[in-house]
Design a protein around this nucleic acid. Structure first.
Lengths: 121, 121
DNA sequence: TGAGTATATGAACATATGAACAGGGGTGAT
DNA sequence: ATCACCCCTGTTCATATGTTCATATACTCA
């Protein structure tokens, strides 16, 4: 890369050149990973789901009780639990009539806490 | 709480009672905090914005170059930058004709990395 | 001041999302 | 076997969100 190589500099006044831009392109995670990332964040991006996850911070709960704790219908909760489970943020365990849900792992709690710290600054 | 106190147990087969459910309700962050949390996650929940943030992991960049690095139009990038800035995930600095964007703080990088770890398991 | 460059904004459109309702399946108790 | 209960699925509808195109604003330099 030579100095003054204008052709390779898309932005005439910025300090970066095509080589650096290509480096960014190449080091970026592949499309699938990026999509997975954004999908997970999307699932977090709903106040009902955040509240459900929060309710599960300490212990597993059944659908009915989550609905009760959040003052919402069982149907609405069930839908959200499905999303959360598909995104593998929670796991479920059947016990007779009831299905108990709990956080999939500690990351989930940590991620929410990180963002909480961020917004509190 | 006495044994067999059915009235206080919304879900007849679960182990929780009204007292515990109310505890969850009361210890839950207030509505405003929950909303802020979900709003921030929503902003993360888009593949273009993730890619923009990723591009900014190491250094600030101007709009034009981000657009170039991501092979997208300047307009699309500008819109997303606005969202990201409103959510305070990035900050901007004007220098002559150019506006340079960079991550607002280290949390942003850490949050994305946490989720990346989660999905890679 | 006027031309050229960099970024921001607005409107229109397509798509995604959440809530509520209706109905069904599975489980346990009688 | 039937019933009550818990949960899930599919649908509809209203709303929110992302993208694109056209245009506006801001800045620099000649």
């Amino acid at each position: 890369m030579n100095r003054g190589d204008i052709v390779d500099k898309p932005c005439l006044t910025c300090q970066y050149n095509m080589t650096i831009l290509n480096k960014i392109k190449n080091e970026m995670p592949d499309e699938e990973t990026i999509n997975k990332l954004s999908e997970v964040f999307k699932i977090f991006g709903d106040s009902t789901r955040i509240r459900i996850l929060w309710a599960l911070f300490d212990k597993e709960m059944c659908v009915y009780d989550i609905a009760e704790a959040l003052s919402m219908t069982q149907s609405a909760i069930s839908h959200q639990l499905r999303s959360l489970k598909q995104a593998r943020l929670i796991k479920s365990r059947r016990d007779g009539k009831n299905t108990f849900y709990s956080l999939d792992d500690d990351h989930v709690k940590r991620i929410i806490e990180q963002v909480l710290i961020h917004i509190e600054e």
